[in-house]
Design a protein around this nucleic acid. Sequence first.
DNA 1: GCGCAAAACGTTATATTGTATCTTTTCGTG
DNA 2: CACGAAAAGATACAATATAACGTTTTGCGC
Lengths: 143, 143
Amino acid sequence: MSAEERLERATRLCAGRGARLTPQRARVLRILIEAERPLGAYEILAEMAEGQRALAPPTVYRALEFLLAQGLVHRLETLNAFIDCRHPERPHPAQFLICSACGRVVEIDDEAIAARLLDAATQSGFAASRKVVEVIGVCEGCR
Amino acid sequence: MSAEERLERATRLCAGRGARLTPQRARVLRILIEAERPLGAYEILAEMAEGQRALAPPTVYRALEFLLAQGLVHRLETLNAFIDCRHPERPHPAQFLICSACGRVVEIDDEAIAARLLDAATQSGFAASRKVVEVIGVCEGCR
DNA sequence: GCGCAAAACGTTATATTGTATCTTTTCGTG
DNA sequence: CACGAAAAGATACAATATAACGTTTTGCGC
Ligand SMILES: [Zn+2]
Ligand SMILES: [Zn+2]
Ligand SMILES: [Zn+2]
Ligand SMILES: [Zn+2]
């Protein structure tokens, strides 16, 4: 799926929800999609500054907040970075494989893991809301 | 298990490994054990400054680095905070349940989750080294 | 004990990541 | 157009983490 197609899908999803994917927000999303790797907020900021007057951090953080709420991007806690979601149609508990050698990130969507985790939380009396699962390792190509 | 007992256990473990649990490091560990909740590095720093001349951030970060390497504490990625480990005898992939209401954290050690995760990573060609699993939710007492 | 190298620690400065607050602009609606 | 709400701009700052470098302490072979 090309970058353009993914952007169009995002536009469609937001339209269907009455959410406003403004040019600014779409620009942040585009940067993330085209990067094909996780980007820190300040990396995005630097991208956006290219050829324009510099923007301030809250601009990027607010756009990211929107995109996170719409499920169009995920936050990687171990990297303090953001990556676009490959299956933004519906909310899902995502798991990430992060290569410590090349930085590549793979999003997997393993229902069994999510279910087992939910189960363990319930057994401990927790009502789970957000599940953060990130595996740091070395990808196939880097071995 | 009391705070003293846990400190003694840590002392014993380090001695057996030839690792130096210096007074400074033990102090950081004690602060974490007695807090009974996750603490940020700067919270620890503030604790250590009580009644003494102020210390600088690297002091705490270095002590934490040692304690992490020894498996005596864990880092909570979603909170940028640290918590003492309840089962430091051997390395283990830990999972955490974090109450967003009261801040309480429970460490669970579910082998099935770890195994399933390792399996998923392997299937995607990843050699997993570190597994971060944190569930944000609301604990029993807070509902 | 002596000398040495490694480890630990102190200190200063700085990098990185993230927010608070207030103002201005934009956009949809009546 | 008038209005209110949402978004964006702008400034300042808070919170978290590390770099760099020098000094002290420690363990160890001699
Ligand atoms: Zn996703
Ligand atoms: Zn790789
Ligand atoms: Zn543990
Ligand atoms: Zn609670």
